[in-house]
Design a binder for these strands. Sequence first.
DNA 1: ACCTGAACACCGTTCAAGT
DNA 2: ACCTGAACACCGTTCAAGT
Lengths: 204, 204
Amino acid sequence: MSPTPARTSRARVVDAARALLEEGGPEAVTMAAVAQRVGVRAPSLYKHIRDRAALLDAVAIDAAEELGRTMTVTSAGAGADPGSRIAALAVAYRAFARRSPRSAAVLFADLGHGTGAPVEVAARAAAPVIDAAALLVGPEAALAAARVLTSFVYGFTTMEQAGAFQLGGSVDDAFRLGVESLVRGLAAADHGMRVGDGRLNPPA
Amino acid sequence: MSPTPARTSRARVVDAARALLEEGGPEAVTMAAVAQRVGVRAPSLYKHIRDRAALLDAVAIDAAEELGRTMTVTSAGAGADPGSRIAALAVAYRAFARRSPRSAAVLFADLGHGTGAPVEVAARAAAPVIDAAALLVGPEAALAAARVLTSFVYGFTTMEQAGAFQLGGSVDDAFRLGVESLVRGLAAADHGMRVGDGRLNPPA
DNA sequence: ACCTGAACACCGTTCAAGT
DNA sequence: ACCTGAACACCGTTCAAGT
């Protein structure tokens, strides 16, 4: 008679998958385990998502959106100094990577063959970094500087979570050293394009 | 009668697995596909490796060893200037990441739950970086500086290979900017521990 | 000592049948 | 319109039997 109402939803399915990812890594994200978490049988999931690959993509997008919100909030609450804005964003990313290490590891691991949507979401998460970088090095070099900063923070947190820093020493100090050195070095770098009133001037 | 001689070997199996990884990603590394490549049936592989997880670990170790050799050779062939040594190592890593993108992506992705051996191998690949960092910032800060440099290069190449840099601009320029800024910033950083003849002096 | 076919458990996915 | 059991193909792994 009346069609049965949905017993779950795409959002619940994605949440369950993300929780399983964090608890046991990608291999723990089986369709049966996800289904059990949302109180349904595995075949029902296909009414909400195309297949397992799309589910993992959705998890990555979900994590990227959360990261984007965190970065935006952090940016809004930071002071005017470019260096401290960048440091605040770096610390915020590191906190995210600690809260959701497996999601963070998966953030930039796949993008290539995805639906294309992740790229937009990642761009939104990157926007506050580009803004802060622009304050430090000017608009022309902002994108390159943001790539540099993002690479360092992503690389550092990924290696840290993977347990790659096992030779002793303070990992916190190394992180601070990296952020400070980058801020200093980027500010000092010759971007070869700002002269006088800021109009573009190509390098010789 | 006479026991049959081995029709394949652990090394061949690992090579086949690594080739499959590069061609189709981790999901392409099935026991059947590996077996077919070395001319054997899937069950025979278990005479050479414990299981699929151990096989993937062995692939990562194999890649890390190759990287270690590349870094050592690069280090031996580089000049005396700390900055150009570091730049040469960074370029060598990036070339490795282009030759073997999936192996590179997997290098620091798992270490945590592995056999423990990968850590030693990774340490060997990192040694030339620590040496070069010591020339730049002194022995006390060398480990931290090496972590910073490695994080940037690993993060940058991983994101680059994942297709994360899609907002235009020169990716090569960004890489150069990162290396140069780090070298400059690390050299300028206050490590709070070198005074006069280099004896350790804690920060105030 | 290594290789094999057969077998088993598990997983992703499809589909006809239920409500 | 969503949910389900049954079924299928595929995969990792074990094991007894071959040489």
